[in-house]
Design a protein around this nucleic acid. Structure first.
Length: 465
RNA sequence: GUGGCUGUAGCUCAGUUGGUUAGAGUGCUAGAUUGUGAUUCUAGGUGUCGGGGGUUCGAGUCCCCUCAGCCACCCCA
């Protein structure tokens, strides 16, 4: 029997899983810091819950089967549809506005490509049950904090409001073909204005004049103030469009007031995304160093999340971090430290009669919040150090008969090769000191979060809780 | 789902117009060294040539199918 995995499904080895878990931990911490609460929902749903919401294309990508009881079952392909079902089903028990985050795998039977798999993880956060622009603003701030906490500084959150596009299209008499027009517009960067105009004419049924008017959007430029000013005449006289613009203006002003530099939060009138259910503010986030990889965190506002399941009107806004895409980007930017262990310290099993001492020492370190492993076999010291090196431990503790007889222990810094002999009561302090040094100058330079609350997520090993 | 490229040791790859027993680097294991890794030296093993079928005296090499990966299209609710 050949061991193998399905197309688009992956195993995650420790070297990949350790940074993956750190990223998840970071997202979780940031979401919680804004008051979002965790939820979970089943991987499987009744098929009819999942189908019909997103059109034929998404239905095709749905993993579906009949269970042993004859039920038609589907695997969730995003976390938004399950959220809609969830809030409709539990509306009575939820306190509105409801803020939740949900980090879980989803499945899509689409063709694979680099960074695109059939099983992948989404990290969503949403605020349901309020129309207030404050929620739109907060969503932008969460995205900003999240990217910073992960370790990026050079990134751009592009923001727009779908109502501006809708207002413009209504003024042009194109509201009936909005989806097709926006789909074409979305390709602007990729295929250029001529081809976009051609697609609008052929596929969306626009006139050449209308297509040209829509493409005026691509000529808008300048800083946020200038862009907003140029949008003004395009929506003037259309109530929806004017509302979108004023909301966008409010959002931009508030995000700036909250301290986000304007180069990271940029109005882009061409961002349309989520053609099916987004109705207001929309976000996409690009990495300055790798714009081609696409948006790593996207989302927006929807007027009525759960209309398929309840009569109750449930507006919401949220966004989703593309975990796998982001990991691919971080890999490419050399932001990921390759280690095979989450522990920082290896205690050598050096003297075979001294296992109890080693276990006691390990317990002391763990009580001090330091992750530590005792090598399981009394092999030759050279081999144990080789193991420590390969797995990426930062420190080895070496204590043979000589040291232990004097109540001492050798703390070996595996990065520098330096050895320090200290008494057993000083070991925790010395280990902390060496780890701190590594964090100061051993980390990957470049795009690093200098830390909120003095805490670093991607530093080299060490002081994790 | 459609089209293109690729698949040889754990990894990166070489392998002549089809010709005997398929190679290199790296890694791995052990030793040199019963107390110090990442840099040295020595020895050692590994392959259903992605899988199946076909053409041929003979296939890693040519043909068909299939699986997987990468790229583009489509799509990304």
């Amino acid at each position: 029997m050949q061991p193998r995995t399905l197309k688009g499904f992956r195993d995650h080895l420790p070297e990949a899983m350790i940074p993956r878990e750190r990223l998840i931990d970071t997202a979780r911490r940031v979401y919680r810091s804004f008051g979002f609460s965790p939820i979970d929902t089943p991987a499987l749903e009744y098929l009819d819950i999942l189908t019909g919401g997103g059109g034929a294309e998404s239905d095709k990508q749905l993993y579906r089967f009949e269970d042993q009881g004859g039920r038609q079952v589907g695997m969730r392909f995003d976390l938004t549809v399950p959220l809609a079902r969830f809030v409709a089903q539990h509306a009575g028990q939820l306190v509105m506005p409801f803020k939740r985050y949900h980090i879980a795998n989803v499945w899509r039977g689409e063709n694979t490509q680099r960074g695109r798999y059939r099983e992948f993880m989404q990290c969503d956060f949403d605020t349901v049950g309020t129309l207030s622009v404050a929620a739109d603003i907060e969503t932008g701030l969460v995205i900003h904090d999240l990217l910073l906490a992960i370790g990026f500084e050079g990134f751009t959150i592009r923001v727009n409001n779908r109502k501006i596009l809708n207002g413009l299209l209504a003024k042009l008499g194109l509201e009936g073909n909005a989806a097709a027009v926006l789909r074409a517009l979305d390709k602007l960067a990729k295929i250029g204005p001529e081809k976009v105009a051609a697609e609008m004419i052929e596929v969306a049924g626009a006139s050449a004049e209308q297509a040209a008017q829509v493409l005026q959007l691509s000529e808008i430029g300048g800083d946020n103030e200038a862009v907003l000013a140029q949008l003004e005449p395009l929506v003037a006289g259309n109530e929806i469009g004017e509302e979108g613009l004023s909301r966008l203006r409010e959002t931009v002003a508030a995000v700036a007031a909250a301290g986000v530099p304007s180069e990271r939060f940029v109005v882009d009138p061409l961002i349309a995304r989520g053609l099916d259910y987004y109705t207001g503010t929309v976000f996409e986030t690009f990495l300055d160093a790798l714009p081609d990889i696409g948006s790593v965190c996207s989302g927006g506002r929807y007027d009525n999340l759960a209309e398929r399941y309840t009569k109750q009107q449930l507006p919401g806004i949220g966004a989703s971090l593309g975990l796998d895409r982001l990991l691919a980007a971080m890999e490419e930017l050399d932001m990921i430290e390759r280690v095979g262990t989450p522990a920082s310290v290896l205690i050598a099993y050096f003297d075979k009669t001294r296992l109890h001492d080693y276990l006691r020492l390990a317990a002391v370190l763990r009580a001090g919040g330091i992750a530590v492993e005792v090598f399981p076999e009394p092999k030759k010291l050279g081999q144990q150090l080789k193991y420590a090196d390969k797995k990426g431990f930062r420190i080895a503790l070496v204590a043979g008969e000589d040291e232990l007889a004097g109540g001492r222990c050798q703390v070996k810094d595996l990065t520098s090769g330096e050895r320090h002999e200290v008494s057993l009561d000083e070991v925790v302090g010395k280990v902390r000191e060496v780890l701190a040094e590594g964090q100061r100058d051993g980390g990957t330079e470049g795009q690093r979060d200098r830390g909120t609350e003095g805490q670093r997520d991607w530093g080299t090993g060490g002081m994790r809780e």
